Structures are given as C-alpha cells and as structure tokens.
Amino acid sequence: MTINRRLALALAAGALLAGSALSAGATDVTPLRAAIDGPQRGAANVARDGARHPYETLEFWGLKPGQTVIEVTPGGGYWTEILAPYAKATGGTYVAGVTDLANPKVSEGGRKARADFEAKYADKAVYGQIRYANFGAVSGPLGAPNSADLVITARNIHNYMVNPGMLDKVMADFHAVLKPGGVLAIEEHRANPGQQKPDVGDGYVEVATVVAAAEKAGFKLAGQSEINANPKDTKDHPFGVWTLPPTKRTAPGGQPANPAFDRSKYDAIGESDRMTLRFVKPA
C-alpha cells in the first residue's frame, strides 16, 4: 500500500472517530494524532518528537479543525508534515510564509530553497492544496486582513531580530492577517532573564523581549507553557544554540566541521530550552 493510501485511510478514520467524539461532546483530537502518526513524516522529524512534543504543543496553541493556519518560515517542514495533512483532513487551509520572491534582493540560494520546499510538498493527495505567501523584511501582507485563525512561527524570532526593525514589521504583519480572537503561536530558544546577547548571536531570546514585541503590535499574552522546556540546557555553548542537536555545529558558522570536537556533553543536553507562548489578537 502506498504512503498516500495509508495516510488517506488513517486521516479518514481519524475524522470519522472525531465526528463520533464530537457528537458525544468530546474534543476533536483524533485527526491530529493521525497526522502526527502518518507515514508522510520523515524519520528525522519523527525522531525529534520527544524534544518538540508536537501533539501537546499544537493542543496548547489551540489548533482546531477547519482553521486557516499560516506557518511563517517553516524551514525544513517539521510542522508542515503535520499541519498540511491535518488541514486537508479537517477542511482547513495551510499557508506557508516562505522566501519573498517579489524582493529582487533575495539570493539565488533563497529562491532555490523555496522551489525545493514547494516541490517537496507538492503531492496534493498527501498535503492538500498548500498556499504560499511571500515573507521577508520588506514583503507585503501575509494574506487578506483578518483572514487567518492561527499564525505559527517556531524557532525564528532570533532571526527576525538580526535585521533592524524586522521584528516590529513581522509582528505587525501577524496582527494584520489574524482574525479578531486569532492566535499567534511562538516557540523560541529561551535566554535566562538578563542574559540575552545584544546581537542575539547565540540564538537565545528572553521571554520578555518576545512579549514586549507582541504587545507592541497589539497582541495580548494568553498563555505560557513549559512543554518544550529543557532544564539541562546551560545556554553557554561555544557555537550558540546550534552546538546542540539537531544542528550539532562543531565549528563557527561558515567554517568546516571539526572532527576533533567532543560532542558528548552537548548531545547529552539534547535540544534547547524553549519558551512556548500563545498570544491573542483582541476581538
């Protein structure tokens, strides 16, 4: 049986069971389980579930059937593999905010990365009709005003802070596209209070920084979770957060890997300590 066929059967069964649960007054979670457990997910991503807690995280953020979900800067697609099939199964829409092709300054590497991403998730039988939005430091709106139910950005805030003014710009973009009552979901490497570096060069950001930026854009903090906390993370690694899994850097960025670097300490830590936040656009 093909992956497409197995996934379709799993999601259909999930939707059927969820419908029965809804008629009994229960919460619809079965299609999400089906998407997380589906054969469309890559082995490397599945191996990270113990650190990223996809079910608990999406439940905390309030993912529901039929929603329009925008994921901004989806990277390699850890969440795409879950959210796109889930949207397809529940009558929702998954939108990926990716490299801004309208920006003439975007590198060829950036354009290729977007093309590769679109090709990877082109199978409509598995992922449905994924929509794409240009996203970047000078991009236009992510969609029509007040059109999205949920905007997700995971492990990206530190990147937005490198370009002066970009964090304020993207927060305003998130606020504009969300419906009143819509949710902004953020996961980010967490710096200890008072220890955020001025250039965020190690990848760690303080919770207060994220909250201040979101509130400046008009959001209200609606919840914080320790789902993705890691108390073993000492946050003092030689190559920043990228010393840890999954990147496992052994030399400064742009330099060849150092085969003599002892990784044992960092592999034992695991993935970073992360904040998991939920903001709401007031009605």
Rank of each mutant, 00 (worst) to 15 (best):
P141V: 09
I3N: 08
K64S: 04
A213S: 13
D233R: 09
E81W: 09
K265A: 15
D123G: 09
A172H: 10
Q67S: 07
T30Y: 08
T234Q: 14
K235F: 05
S147R: 00
F135C: 07
S225A: 11
T57A: 13
V162T: 13
I3H: 08
R33M: 08
G218L: 09
L244E: 03
D233S: 08
P141T: 10
T99D: 12
P252K: 12
L16R: 12
A260Q: 11
V177K: 07
R48F: 07
G218D: 05
A47V: 11
G38V: 01
I186A: 02
N146P: 04
G218K: 10
G97E: 05
A133V: 07
R5S: 11
G143T: 07
K265C: 01
G165Y: 12
V151Q: 12
A208T: 15
Y204R: 12
S23L: 15
V177N: 06
I36E: 03
A217V: 06
F60V: 08
E59M: 11
D267F: 07
E81F: 11
G194F: 05
P180F: 01
A122D: 08
K232L: 13
A217T: 01
A34F: 00
S139K: 11
D116G: 05
L167V: 14
P85Y: 00
P141W: 10
K64I: 02
G128H: 02
A89K: 06
T243Q: 04
D168S: 14
K88R: 15
V183F: 06
A260C: 00
L58Y: 03
Q255I: 02
A12N: 09
N4Q: 15
V162D: 07
E118R: 10
A176D: 14
A8I: 08
P256Q: 08
T243R: 00
A96Q: 00
E108M: 12
A26E: 07
P39I: 08
N4G: 05
M161Q: 13
K105L: 15
E81I: 13
S225Y: 11
R6F: 02
A15I: 06
R111C: 07
I186S: 02
M1C: 09
T247A: 14
G66F: 00
W61L: 00
A217Q: 05
G140S: 10
A213K: 05
K197S: 13
I152S: 06
F279K: 02
I227G: 07
K169S: 11
R278S: 03
V207R: 13
A15N: 08
D116Q: 15
D28Q: 10
A144W: 04
V200P: 01
K179W: 12
Y86M: 06
G182D: 03
A119C: 09
A21P: 00
I70H: 03
A13V: 11
A96H: 01
P246V: 14
A102M: 14
M275R: 01
I152K: 04
L16N: 02
K124M: 05
M1W: 01
Q67Y: 07
N230C: 03
L22I: 13
